Amino acid sequence: MFEYHGWVTIRETAGVEDAPDGLLEQQLGEIRACLAELGDYGLVDLRVMNGTPFLHLAGAPNHDGGWRGVLLGLFERVGRIAPGSYGLLHVWDDEGVHPNAFRVFRLVRGEVSEHADALLSPAVPTLEDPWPELR
């Protein structure tokens, strides 16, 4: 099982000064094009609330099947397109390197970094009961 939940607040820049007119709309067009490449699996929601764009992603395919790379690639692309963006992507891959733990990928100032999760991990017994001993 491969489960993921992520969000990004999209910001033109990390600067305090106003961005050039039209920059955000251009960036959103580029981000929409990236999202169109994802296909039609899982939750993908990009909307603007009170003038700020937010991206939300979630899904649970049976196996990674390349999804980790696709999702991290998307976070990296959003960071390049709109370098003031920030967000988190939580991933649990029970067949991966950390089968009993969520991993958290952080997007800040155009950079994506990986971190251990202390709130939902270890998945067993935090989220699920252990399997009973086979007799």
Rank of each mutant, 00 (worst) to 15 (best):
V124G: 07
M49L: 09
G87M: 09
D45F: 01
R135T: 15
Y4N: 09
V48S: 14
D129L: 14
V124L: 07
V108A: 15
I31N: 07
A14S: 14
R32K: 11
L134E: 14
R32T: 03
D40W: 00
Y41G: 02
P99F: 01
D21M: 09
W67Q: 11
V44K: 09
L43V: 12
D129N: 10
T9Y: 02
G73V: 13
H115Q: 09
H98P: 00
W7T: 14
V44M: 08
L127D: 03
A36I: 01
R106P: 00
L71G: 13
P122Y: 06
L28H: 04
G51N: 07
G84A: 08
H5P: 01
C34G: 00
L72A: 10
I10T: 14
G15V: 05
H115N: 05
G22N: 04
G84T: 04
V70H: 06
G110F: 11
G87T: 06
W7S: 15
L89Q: 06
G39V: 10
R106S: 12
N50H: 05
I10E: 14
M1H: 11
R47H: 13
L43Q: 11
V91H: 02
G42M: 08
V44N: 05
S85Y: 03
T126V: 09
E111S: 12
L38A: 06
D117C: 02
